[in-house]
Write a protein that binds this DNA or RNA. Structure first.
Lengths: 256, 256
DNA sequence: CAAATATTGTTGCTTTATGTTGAAAATAAT
DNA sequence: ATTATTTTCAACATAAAGCAACAATATTTG
């Protein structure tokens, strides 16, 4: 077991895939060494190796939800890593549904002793596997393509908490209308999470600032001043007014 | 116990890993001394030692649950496939926690329009991704290594259903004591699921018939006559009495 | 105070990890 | 197809870390 193993594991879980050269650079060792360290990890099945890169061992799943997991993959991984940086060990967070939130959940696996309340079964499942976390699944009736709950019980569970951060996502960002989601129930859950949070964290990839979806969308309630927007590209100046009350964090394409 | 121990512990937890040379420098002692001090700490399991460094003992990520996902992998997959064969499209099932159940959930992705009630976030997440399924997550407070709920809400949700099959698993099978699980709460959930089911399906791999766990185990309530046992190897004749009231299905080891 | 005990540093040697080189394999480009 | 580029792998040389035994120093105990 090498001292670099945990660093490699983290990089892989966080980013899904990472090249040998990147790791060599990040760890300040030669590529050959990286390969040597990785070999036993592959044998143990902790990571998978393809030509040119090492990728997370987690395989399974193809459904529509996970399809979206692959759009803007690198951007979302970078954003998720930045969000995970904002959260401390022992933190208390609420996390909503959405593919970006799924990435955030993956990234948060490096944190310890988290208390998490979420209405997404995927997020709940991911984070409850981590020893020491306290995870609460809000709601029981799950929606059939993303495994999220929006029933009465979900609101009741959420309302019983007080969290440091509400980690939210949106389908689109509009200069005047703000952060938009597709359905009323998503808006309601996001609102409920914002209400119990000292601070909201809105995680949206750059594409959300450009997408001009034709479908009707609903605006989320306004976030508290001082809330944090995490994205991977500096938004167009047209968004200045909208973003002024907030702290905008730009996630770097990321080194190790 | 050396006066340097707490300093070392702090350095390790703080930084995740630290080299012997760094510690020697910081504590102003020789490297040999550092090794000598660390030796008993390693024996006690407080820290871990690798060539070149001391690393935190907190095994970041080898959740016992996912570890078990890989034991008896082929057997469990065969059993799961057989269970999935018993369930029809449009079926209504309850599924409990456990690595075998996780495989069953995977296998059940080939079925359509299932109604599922489970106390496992992993099972819920897996099956809710399938278009057309109705999945209910029973419970909100999730246990931290397998993401299963055993709280009051879990029982309430389960009690509100009536299902065709309760798909259960056990830690061990004993000729006289029957099907055994490790904890009271697991027994209770299994019992609750059996009560709402017309028929129970017990999925246990052959190893469960042999394992002679020394730890104290609890017997599950007796299943209805006609319930189904699915395993991959014909049980020893010593189990004849126990299994007589049931239908035993032997899953053929499958390709892939 | 002296003897016993524990702690630390030093030395020489063994084991392990790492970087470099060059050839083979795989992938991409033509 | 063929060539070019990148990635991987094996082998060797070297540096670094670990280890055991001994010597020197401090600490406790009778």
């Amino acid at each position: 077991m090498s001292k670099y193993e945990t660093a490699i594991r983290e990089a892989v879980t966080l980013r899904g895939s990472v090249t040998v050269a990147e790791l060599a650079d990040a760890l300040d060792v030669s590529g050959q060494t990286v390969r040597r360290i990785i070999k036993p990890m592959v044998d143990r099945g902790e990571v998978r190796k393809v030509h040119g890169a090492i990728v997370s061992a987690r395989s399974e799943m193809d459904p529509p939800f996970l399809a979206r997991m692959h759009e803007q993959q690198k951007e979302k991984a970078a954003i998720a890593a930045m969000v995970a940086q904002l959260i401390d060990d022992d933190g208390i967070v609420a996390i909503d549904t959405g593919s970006t939130s799924a990435y955030v959940a993956q990234a948060l696996r490096v944190r310890r002793n988290l208390t998490v309340v979420t209405n997404s079964a995927f997020v709940a499942s991911t984070l409850s596997m981590i020893e020491g976390n306290r995870v609460f699944m809000a709601g029981s009736r799950l929606r059939d393509h993303d495994g999220a709950a929006f029933d009465r019980a979900a609101f009741d569970v959420i309302a019983g908490f007080k969290v440091d951060y509400a980690i939210l996502s949106a389908s689109e960002v509009h200069p005047e209308r703000g952060f938009l989601v597709q359905e009323q129930c998503e808006k309601d859950i996001a609102g409920a999470m914002m209400e119990i949070a000292s601070c909201s964290v809105m995680a949206v990839d750059g594409a959300k600032f450009r997408d001009t979806g034709r479908r009707p969308l609903l605006s989320l309630p306004r976030m508290l001043d001082g809330s944090i927007i995490v994205t991977e590209a500096t938004p167009d100046s047209g968004f200045n007014d909208l973003l002024k009350p907030y702290r905008v964090e730009i996630a770097a394409a990321q080194a190790g």
